[in-house]
Write a protein that binds this DNA or RNA. Structure first.
Lengths: 187, 187
DNA sequence: GCGGCAAGTCAACATGTGTTTACCTGCTGT
DNA sequence: ACAGCAGGTAAACACATGTTGACTTGCCGC
């Protein structure tokens, strides 16, 4: 194997995101991640100081990913974007992983703060793009957060339980119901 | 402490449900549970053969609980029932725990099967009570499962992230948005 | 070619966890 | 009152896991 620090660093991050998103923090071991990246366990502590540090880094990439995706998105796009992320059409599993990471707590204070901050920003954006005043009032915010929570629940259920037809529904099949669901942000 | 087997058994079950529901399976230790019940760790293996056995028992109580709650419930009750469970008005935290346990996987095959079976039955019931044929077609089932997933996501978000106003919203405040959300089962 | 350094490995350590075995202890029927 | 037994405890074991420090190996500039 050719030696390239930043390359294996990225490989570690990718594998870690994969496992953290699907099995949660406590269940995935650093040895799983290292093996998945074809590398020794010690490199995790070396590159990310600790398992927690690695998790935080994963969350950090998720935050920037979502901020980029939210650029110039208007309300009617939300359901489509959600459907796309939720089904993650075999091309880019990172989309689903991003959603899932938002619900995987590590017990780490910093990580939880990052997650909370992002979710707060997302729900606020969703509320105003649905027509709420700026800053949105409490009820508008609540409705937006309910929809967000719904999306996270769907992501989790698709990833963890294989309940048919939800588990294998295609993007096209999810689109209409998701439109209806997202529309509930509007009073 | 007075000695009463079935009483301490129930205490263990209650504490286990509490911890499993809030922190998940991997994160809660048998010593946490035993301490919470004011009892020695060895009793868990004694009464439930293993940590997995204890978890299965928790899930089993949840299944019977939900089956009892579903008796004679019609579609218009669903949102109210959900709001009630989700907010768990300080009286009976077991309601929220029931919802949360449905999303806490232990990696145990039997437990996952139980969960899947219950969710399947619930979504089917929800679909037909929303007006679908019996047995419901795939699309109706999908919509029902999406609503179910939404409910689980909300439960999880209220329990794990403290995102305001969702985290502390009252039953009354949740009722209207939940009505809208549940109504999306209907095409 | 080769010395030096970054990239990577190896083995050990400390600790937390589920489980078991042998051992107490208080209630109960007689 | 007391023997017997179910209810409960204590300590140890086996093992998995996160982390560390010493060691090895491949690459790059001279």
């Amino acid at each position: 194997m050719t030696r390239n620090a930043s390359q294996t660093r990225h490989r570690l991050l990718a594998v870690a995101r994969h496992h953290f998103a699907r099995q949660g923090y406590a269940t995935t071991t650093v040895r799983d991640i290292a093996d998945g990246a074809g590398v020794n366990v010690a490199l995790i502590s070396r590159y990310f100081t600790s398992k927690e540090g690695l998790f935080e880094e994963c969350l950090r990439t998720t935050v920037t990913d979502f901020k980029a995706a939210a650029q110039g998105m208007v309300f009617t796009d939300v359901a489509e974007a959600l459907a796309h992320r939720l089904t993650s059409p075999t091309g880019d599993p990172a989309l689903l992983e991003g959603l899932l990471l938002l619900i995987r707590s590590s017990g780490d204070e910093r990580a939880d703060t990052m997650r909370r901050t992002l979710l707060c920003a997302m729900s606020s954006r969703l509320a105003v793009s649905a027509g709420a005043a700026e800053p949105p009032d409490t009820e508008a915010l609540l409705r937006a957060q309910l929809v967000l929570a719904a999306a996270l629940g769907i992501a989790m259920m698709r990833a963890n339980l294989d309940l048919e037809p939800l588990a294998t529904a295609t993007e096209a099949e999810m689109l209409n119901p998701l439109h209806a669901l997202v529309a509930t942000v509007i009073p």
